[in-house]
Design a protein around this nucleic acid. Structure first.
Lengths: 329, 329
DNA sequence: CGCACACCTGAGAGCGCTACCACCACAAGC
DNA sequence: GCTTGTGGTGGTAGCGCTCTCAGGTGTGCG
């Protein structure tokens, strides 16, 4: 019923208890190779009885596998690791990894210096890397050992599969909603300029403005609420007749609404504001935020799964984004 | 400058390159035992040149150390893992663990069945556990192998150190603010009933109400926005003259404000609403949320550090919580 | 009857590392 | 001279597991 000693059971203990060799026990536990039903039953029973859990370190050592999945986040400085978005990615990945006996580590990957991935390549403890907000130089410098064990949330490359929300589709849905509700002077507060994947929504914005014959009004943001507030004010200063702001993130939108309210500008009365992400607080903000969904957890889980499985996956997986029309636009 | 082969360098490679034995190289790298300055220099140089990174699996195997820190979250069901609060804990822990070559895994620890920790005790891959929202039965069933390698965010026990925000102090600061601004019919929406640590703020509420001779109006919540909205409405139904609601979390407060607004009740005009946590969105909500700080990341980082170091720490570490007075109360 | 070909099993090497132990050189003390 | 350190070093046994390889026991077939 319980382990005789304080020491956790090893495969040897299980084999002895089941009356088979370590090899056979290993085969049964790992589910590889041949094993008679009888042996299978006895080993299974012994493992249960002793509460046997394989030692992932030993397993990783002999298989050369690694025990750690690294979430590598690029950005200006290590402060990007303090982002709620990054937290959600890490949380979702940590949940996926747990049953595999794999842990998740969070590191900042500087934009300069493509050698950062090299260190992770040398570290045999690393079984895979999920890149977040990365850039092409990084994608092009994947060490040989990590080939096929890297996924990217955002842009990808021929060798690194990409997982992301359909930025263009989501932006398009929001912008059309803005247009359909009569807005004609629509400005956009973007994500950081260096972030290529954020460019998709900007492209959708430009395309729609052009096809509708409307002016393009772009202000660079960084996904943060603080920057969103400043960007909204800047927008109204440069183009006072703006009647709608599309923010690249909900945080930005919330910051914009707050700043606008501080200036006595009504939302959505004077200016409609829409975001992107549909964070949990979007539904209970005042006014309730109109936005497009961004299934961060599902994206992160898919990226982690791809790395863990090491299977071939399509080069690009885009998760659909749908409009959530509430009150702010 | 670079590894000659595609295979990452091993300690043997370093030793050979430095012209010393593997033992000496190990001593220098691990920083244990004697080593002459000359040997130290040569090994260090060789390690740099080869880009040597120790294999954490091998190290863990021989030291019997474990490579994974498990964040074990208790709650009604596995859905608690989807909480932004949990995400922040995991993010902060993952950041602390990365330099140690340790990964973080996220698991749900059912409230029933104290044997859940037993499995983690049998798993030699687990180097420590951080309990979140746990209960006494779990704390009293720590397996021998994990003794001294468990920390709790929330309540602790004689053997498991506790790290938490000063719930009582934070609640007290918010409630006094409510009282000082003239509110006299103050209701509270609590956290889940089974969560003992949440009881501290309830105790502070009861104490203040009693000493001020005010009526106690308690409604049970669960920290969520949805429940917060329903709880606020319930409060106003049961006690229509309520002029302030203290919510045990910002999400709850935001939900309450949203629901109140839906009923045409003005915040803070008719009812003041205050939260607890000071989440990033509290500053940009409408009205800006009055709340008390809750340094989740610092708490999680401290808990992870304690587990990683394995050093003795004080049984209780309470992080101060301060009032952030904004518009909602 | 022998031979191929399943299916199944156990011995044993070895993944990369640390830690124990034996050893060596040299200095100090009787 | 011999002992007793003291600082430094290398040999080597394993940590717990997987996986290859050499067998060993059946069945079907020429």
């Amino acid at each position: 019923m319980s382990t005789p000693t304080a020491r956790p059971a090893t495969l040897d203990d299980v084999a002895r208890a089941a009356g088979v060799s370590r090899s056979t026990a290993s085969r049964v536990i790992a589910g590889t190779g041949f094993a008679s039903p009888a042996a299978r039953d006895r080993v299974g029973a012994a493992a249960d009885r002793l509460g046997y859990v394989p030692n992932p370190a030993a397993r990783a050592l002999v298989r050369g596998a690694g025990v750690r999945l690294v979430i590598a986040v690029s950005g200006e400085d290590a402060g990007v690791l303090d982002d709620p978005y990054v937290d959600r990615v890490v949380g979702a990945a940590a949940r996926i990894c747990a049953p595999h006996g794999v842990g998740v580590a969070l590191e900042w990957l500087p934009l300069r210096g493509p050698n950062a991935l090299r260190r992770l390549g040398e570290d045999r403890g690393v079984c895979g890397v999920v890149l977040v907000n990365t850039t092409h130089p990084v994608l092009d410098a994947v060490p040989a050992r990590l080939r096929g064990r890297v996924a990217s949330i955002g842009i990808g490359s021929p060798t690194v599969p990409s997982f992301d929300v359909d930025n263009g589709g989501g932006a398009d849905a929001v912008l059309r909603h803005l247009y359909d509700s009569g807005r004609r002077r629509i400005a956009m507060v973007t994500g950081p300029r260096w972030l290529t994947c954020a460019g998709r929504s900007v492209a959708a914005y430009r395309a729609l403005m052009r096809s509708a014959g409307l002016p393009v009004r772009l202000v660079t943001g960084d996904f943060s609420a603080a920057r969103g507030g400043r960007a909204a004010l800047e927008t109204l200063t440069r183009w006072p007749d703006t009647d709608a702001i599309f923010a690249a993130s909900d945080a930005t939108a919330l910051g914009a609404i707050s700043a606008l309210r501080g200036r006595g500008i009504r939302v959505p009365g004077d200016v409609a504001v829409a975001g992107f992400d549909d964070i949990p607080y979007a539904a209970v903000s005042t006014p309730a935020l109109t936005t497009a969904t961004h299934p961060v957890r599902r994206i992160a889980a898919a990226a982690a799964t791809a790395v863990l499985d090491g299977r071939r996956v399509p080069p690009v997986t885009a998760f659909p984004s749908t409009l959530v029309a509430r009150e702010s636009a």
